[in-house]
């Protein structure tokens, strides 16, 4: 019983949140890794692209809400998300047309793309703040929980409850659907295979008649879709604030690098590695231990490895460790 309680406690505060957060990071890292695989640079604007797509989704959500359109128990944002993806894709394609295409035609050094992406990040950040403002926005509606802690306790008779927020459930399910679709696309469709071929050997792809502009455009559209979905899910789960999305860059990059830049499977694994490490290291284990050891053995402190203020340090340290030990990532990427 005590053991079950400890497990319930861990599920509630570690497992469930980490699964949701990991899914969000995985989706974000997939976008970064796809852009890296095809265009060969780390896109610093990705966090702000997420913010842009989410912002459009929020605006449509508000519009739908004002017209009385709802999805019942599900958040209206799911209905608005396709519009977010549409606008975000258009925006990202416009940045490619206006910014990156020029450097592609000149075959510029990757670091030039990095700087250009910083410029795009600035502009995107400005646009998002200009339109929706720098503050927190809450746009979740519908049911709050799939399982409430109280219901769980009643159901199982345990003294610790496990609650699963609807947003967390939606996040994980959406992640599975999106990843399945993405892998189907990359492995089974003509366009997907041409993307992989281009990422593998650009010159040979050209010799095979693969149109580079098309591959690049598809990549940007996918990246925009992944960014919008990841951003919306994160916003539903927590809240939307432009600066937070900029800060998500670090864990997302860490996830992509840990998994091996350019490797989609690695990006997903990396997302979960980062999310679980971050939450496990910043969780205070005192109450879990209290269930497992006799009363007078329970330590005074919180038994928290690191304060949550330093959660970014976790991504950072994992990133450095991977760079030290396996610079290509856990799964081999196209990096280095």
């Amino acid at each position: 019983m005590e053991l079950l309680n400890a497990l319930a406690l861990l599920s509630n505060y570690v497992l469930v949140p980490a699964l949701a957060y990991g899914s969000q990071l995985a989706l974000g890292a997939l976008g970064v890794t796809l852009v890296f695989g095809i265009l060969r640079f780390s896109n610093f604007a990705h966090g702000d692209t997420m913010a842009f797509g989410t912002m459009v989704t929020i605006l449509f959500t508000w519009w739908f809400q004002s017209m009385g359109i709802h999805l019942g128990p599900l958040p209206t944002a799911l209905l608005a998300m396709p519009f977010g993806i549409l606008f975000c894709a258009a925006y990202v394609l416009a940045t490619d047309r206006l910014v990156y295409r020029f450097y592609r035609s000149k075959r510029s050094d990757p670091v030039i793309y990095l700087i250009a992406s910083v410029g795009v990040m600035f502009v995107t950040n400005g646009i998002v703040r200009f339109i929706i403002g720098p503050d927190d926005q809450n746009f979740a509606d519908g049911e709050r929980f799939i399982i409430k802690a109280g219901e769980f306790k009643k159901l199982t008779g345990l003294s610790e409850g496990v609650s699963i927020k609807l947003s967390q459930g939606i996040t994980v399910i959406t992640m599975f659907i999106v990843v399945a679709l993405l892998f189907w696309f990359l492995n089974k469709t003509r366009s997907g295979k041409s993307m992989r071929a281009y990422s593998d050997n650009e010159d040979l792809a050209l010799l095979s008649g693969i149109n580079p502009d098309r591959v690049v455009a598809i990549t940007w559209i996918l990246a925009a879709a992944l960014a919008t979905i990841a951003g919306t899910l994160y916003g539903l789960d927590k809240s939307f604030k432009p600066f937070t999305y900029f800060q998500l860059l670090l864990p997302i990059f860490a996830a992509a690098i840990v998994g091996g830049l350019g490797n989609p499977l690695g990006a997903i694994a990396g997302g979960f590695v980062i999310a679980f490490s971050e939450i496990m290291i910043t969780y205070a284990y005192k109450r879990v231990i209290a269930y497992l050891v006799p009363g007078d053995w329970v330590p005074d402190g919180l038994i928290q490895l690191l304060s949550t203020d330093y959660k970014f340090a976790v991504s950072f340290v994992i990133l450095l460790l991977v760079l030290l030990v396996r610079p290509n990532g856990i799964f081999k990427g196209t990096g280095v």
Binding site: R196, A197, D200, N201, D203, L204, L207
Partner: peptide, 12 residues
């Protein structure tokens, strides 16, 4: 045209 080097898609 078959180039001299890098003439396959290695991860496919």
């Amino acid at each position: 045209f078959v180039p001299q080097t890098n003439n396959v898609f290695p991860s496919m």
